[in-house]
Simulated assay, not measured.
Amino acid sequence: MFSRAYQTHHDRQLALWLLTCAVVIYGMILLGGVTRLTESGLSMVEWRPIMGIWPPIGEAAWQEVFAKYQRFPEYQKINQGMGLDEFKVIFMYEYLHRVLGRLIGLLFIIPLVFFALRGVIRPGLMPRLLVLLVLGGCQGLLGWYMVKSGLVDRPSVSQYRLTAHLGLAVALYAAILWQFLNLWPKAGRRSKSSSTASLAGVARWSPLLVVLVYLMILSGGLVAGTDAGYAYPTWPKMGPGFVPPGLYAATPSWLAAFEDVTTIQFNHRLFAYLLFFLVGGFGLFLALKASGTALRLAGGAVMAALLLQITLGIGTLLTRMAIPVAAGHQAGAILLLTVLLFTVHLLRRHTTINGS
Score class of each variant (00 low, 15 high):
R36G: 06
L337V: 10
F342Y: 09
G315P: 00
P123K: 15
A61R: 07
Y75R: 10
A187N: 11
R102F: 06
A257H: 01
Q76K: 14
E46Q: 14
I29Q: 09
V120F: 07
E39Q: 15
I25G: 10
P127N: 10
P155T: 03
H97N: 15
V131F: 04
F2P: 12
F91P: 01
G101T: 09
A304W: 00
P55H: 11
I53T: 10
Q159C: 05
A326W: 00
F277M: 09
Q80R: 15
G281T: 08
Y93N: 14
F285G: 10
R189Q: 09
I264L: 10
W254R: 11
R71H: 06
I217C: 09
V45M: 06
L209I: 01
V147Y: 00
A116Y: 12
D11M: 09
I314K: 12
Q309H: 08
L166E: 03
R12T: 03
G313A: 12
F271E: 09
C21D: 06
I334Q: 09
G332Q: 07
I57F: 04
R296H: 09
R71D: 07
V261Y: 04
T8Q: 14
A169R: 04
L275E: 04
L270E: 02
A250C: 04
Y95S: 13
T251P: 00
P185R: 14
V344Q: 08
M146R: 05
L14N: 03
L107Y: 03
P240F: 02
L199K: 00
E94N: 12
